[in-house]
């Protein structure tokens, strides 16, 4: 939005200064130069991102040939794969379970990340960058290892069980810790925690401090000030963080495989199995695209609802 308004302003100035025809020429040449410089990246992304996604869409309308007819697909277009996805309750059930898990993980990470980002933005005076680096390091470290750490912690002979046993607090290992949806939510909340901090921090840091002073001068206490000024102004960061966490979590298959057990499997696990074990790629493609469409709809609804709610506070 900021970019659009900036473009608009530039366009307006140019028109006023240089006249319409020259402006049109300038814009055309800017466009040409821009695309010339952008073309290598564009070509790579079209070949490596656009083409694969289009082919995946095409695949979802095809049919896998049975093994006895050789390896390959029948490319007659059909909606059968989608019908299959929606007719078998397991896929719909696992989709909703995945959404519930992703929603909980998003809620936890944002709720925990917000005060943390708030602390760094408003209360840390010196060595702010040390805090920021400390909070970003986990973002970049191996996701596989972060998830695996929890298997060590929650396992049958894991840190918690063996720790409690050796302290004599329990006599039998607690079995519910590992291989459950709870374990999945816990592991993912930890693995994605760092994703929440930065977007929220950036939006908090942008808030004009004089607005808070004005709110205090006009008689708002700290809580009212937070509720009516800080929180609404930081909502773009909260929404960004939520989307940044919800979407990748919805597609995850590592954590459910490591700590999920049969009750904690997510849609990503089923997609992965279709592609790497069952080998029915058209069905896998239809499953993946349906799930992604579902995720996209939920994200759009969530964003719209959050915006509306924010407006009503103000």
């Amino acid at each position: 939005m900021a970019q659009a308004s900036l473009q608009h302003k530039n366009a307006h100035n140019n028109t006023a200064r240089l006249g319409d025809r020259f402006d049109a020429f300038l814009r055309r040449s800017e466009t040409a130069s821009g695309y010339a410089l952008l073309s290598p990246t564009m070509i790579v992304m079209i070949l490596g991102l656009g083409a694969p996604l289009l082919l995946l869409i095409a695949y979802s309308f095809w049919t896998q040939l049975p093994p006895e007819q050789g390896i390959g697909v029948d490319t007659t277009p059909t909606f059968d794969r989608y019908a299959q996805v929606f007719s078998e309750p397991i896929y719909v059930d696992v989709f909703w379970r995945t959404m519930a898990i992703s929603g909980l993980v998003t809620a936890f990470t944002v709720a925990l990340g917000y005060p943390m980002a708030y602390y760094v933005a408003f209360h840390v005076q010196r060595y702010k960058f040390v805090w920021l680096i400390l909070l970003t390091i986990p973002f970049w470290t191996s996701y596989l290892l972060r998830a695996f750490a929890w298997k060590i912690i929650l396992g049958f002979n894991g840190v918690i069980n063996s720790g409690l046993l050796s302290l004599g607090l329990i006599t039998q290992p607690l079995e519910f810790l590992l291989y459950s949806p709870t374990a999945v939510v816990l592991t993912l909340s930890h693995a994605y925690a760092a994703f929440a901090i930065l977007p929220i921090y950036v939006s908090l840091e942008k808030i004009d401090r004089s607005l808070l002073e004005a709110s205090a001068d006009l008689g708002d206490g700290p809580w009212a000030s937070f509720w009516r000024v800080t929180l609404p102004l930081s909502m773009p960061g909260v929404i960004a963080a939520a989307v940044l966490i919800f979407v990748p979590v919805a597609g995850d298959y590592v954590t459910p495989s490591l700590v999920g057990g049969p009750e904690g499997q997510m849609i990503g696990t089923l997609i992965q199995v279709q592609f790497l074990r069952v080998g029915d790629w058209p069905f896998g493609a239809a499953l993946a695209l349906s799930a992604m469409a579902g995720v996209a709809i939920l994200v759009i609804l969530f964003t719209a609802a959050t915006r509306l709610a924010t407006r009503s506070i103000r």
Binding site: L53, L56, V243, P248, D252, G268, I271, A285, A288
Partner: peptide, 21 residues
């Protein structure tokens, strides 16, 4: 937006799409 898409699509989608291509 198109170039930044990999940040907003689950990695599993990129993985299967590339595998297929």
């Amino acid at each position: 937006g198109f170039i930044m898409l990999p940040l907003f699509v689950p990695e599993i989608m990129l993985g299967i799409a590339l595998l297929v291509l």
